[in-house]
Design a protein around this nucleic acid. Structure first.
Lengths: 256, 256
DNA sequence: TGTGTCGGATTGTCGGACGATAATTCCGCA
DNA sequence: TGCGGAATTATCGTCCGACAATCCGACACA
């Protein structure tokens, strides 16, 4: 083995199906095709790229999976805006595989939720506030059913995310939220005073948003999440244990 | 159109290739197969699932694309931990397609970076601090080259992310970081005092981390990002304009 | 207006095939 | 006996051709 001079870059042939996917992706991102517009049938792509249909299909699958293209009613492919939950579930999955701890989840959620409610307090529209009020009212009605309360809690936070008007923030927090939700459910089922405290916090947060009181919003969001943490520990868990695979959803697909 | 009673759930048949993907994914997430362990060859999967190889291939492509399985040197498929950047680029792409504004990016980054440096100040190891010092030293050396400084800035923030020891936070901020980086590059190229101010901020942040001074860390991280925003505006941009497709990387694939 | 029917288009799935390349085995030679 | 290189095998990427199921649109019909 002579010392080989690094004259050549390591050769790396990209498989055709990836090239297909990247070519289409580039066109979409460059704005050549706008969301909603069709990108042609498989047969057409076969002709354009000069590869076999199987290859085209493998390529298309990737983009379809990412949600940047979708099949319309015609079954024809069209560009689409990837929906949040689709991306979020991937990231959530990664968190589970990486065995992140609840502490990490707690810390990150704290930062994200505080920023979110800050935005919501500043910019929530009347419609969003009405939706939040409706959510809180419903929560009050099902206070005896922990699972239902947990579900509404999840919805509440999603609504606040929307109300914040910050999509970057929404995208950033959704993966964590997906993990927080099942935990909340577990906590509420085991900590008797949980639902009442949760409702109180939601009411205060909503009130802060209504009054555009950023500081009060932050305060109650913080308390709310601290309740979550304390409940988690009171339910007999260690904050430094990794989140485990309880959190795989039954069907991670099909978001209408 | 009469009011149709919602008696039936929308029918939805899942194609076989998706079932294959989901079946494998479930097994992995349930912990049946740990990262690094092989999944079996395509031929074996064909036998197990009783479908055609084309179908199996379409299915495993999806998981491969998500990074939860990978081909080893044997070419055999094995479970793997999805790496951050792979997920991040998807989310970044979504942000571009959704035409999020710089303001949204700025706000979200602020929350995420403050939380990150907080974690770093509390938990950075000596090794991480050394790496940060090395980064700062290199930055000082290339101060005349805006592009190089931008690159090192990106690295600096990645290092702080690692130093924070919070992977949830890291996963949450990476997508935004991917968008911040090209902007920083543009700003540094146009704002003469940019590099010097950036270096100063990095030094202060590093110092705060070294002294475990959370408040100082937050302060300088905030200033640093405010500089970014001001530079952005000084460079003649409007904070409320959508980020555009300048940000698609040349090759969004292959992370070793 | 609502309903059956038909043809065409498109997809999902299949079976089989070939070459390229990495992994493994085997064999001749020192 | 041990080792380097050749032969074999395994596996993947790609291709081809095919078929049924399904959906869309159009059209005729009640």
């Amino acid at each position: 083995m002579t010392e080989l001079a690094e004259k050549f870059r390591r050769i790396h042939s990209t498989p055709a199906y990836q090239l297909v996917a990247e070519a289409i992706e580039r066109r979409i991102l460059a704005g050549g095709i706008r969301p909603g517009e069709p990108i042609g049938t498989e047969a057409e792509l076969v002709k354009q790229f000069g590869v076999n249909r199987s290859t085209v299909r493998e390529g298309i699958r990737l983009l379809e999976h990412d949600g940047i293209i979708q099949r319309q009613s015609n079954r024809r492919l069209a560009v689409s805006l990837p929906h949040y939950d689709r991306l979020a579930s991937r990231t959530t999955r990664a968190m589970v595989l990486h065995e992140v701890t609840f502490r990490e989840l707690y810390e990150a959620s704290m930062a994200l939720q505080l920023a979110t409610i800050e935005g919501a307090a500043q910019r929530a529209t009347d419609a969003m506030i009405a939706a939040l009020e409706e959510n809180v009212a419903r929560t009050a009605r099902v206070l005896g059913d922990p699972a239902a309360v947990a579900e509404l809690d999840s919805e509440f936070h999603t609504l606040i995310g929307k109300a914040s008007g910050n999509r970057v923030l929404q995208l950033a927090r959704e993966p964590s939220d997906l993990l927080v939700y099942p935990t909340t459910k577990m906590i509420l089922a085991r900590v008797p005073e949980g639902p009442a405290r949760l409702l109180e916090a939601h009411r205060r947060m909503l009130d802060a948003i209504r009054r555009r009181d950023v500081e009060a919003g932050r305060l109650w969001a913080r308390r709310h999440l601290n309740d979550w943490r304390k409940g988690f520990e009171r339910a007999g868990n260690d904050l430094d244990q990794p989140i485990d695979s309880l959190y795989l959803r039954a069907s991670p697909t099909s978001s209408s």
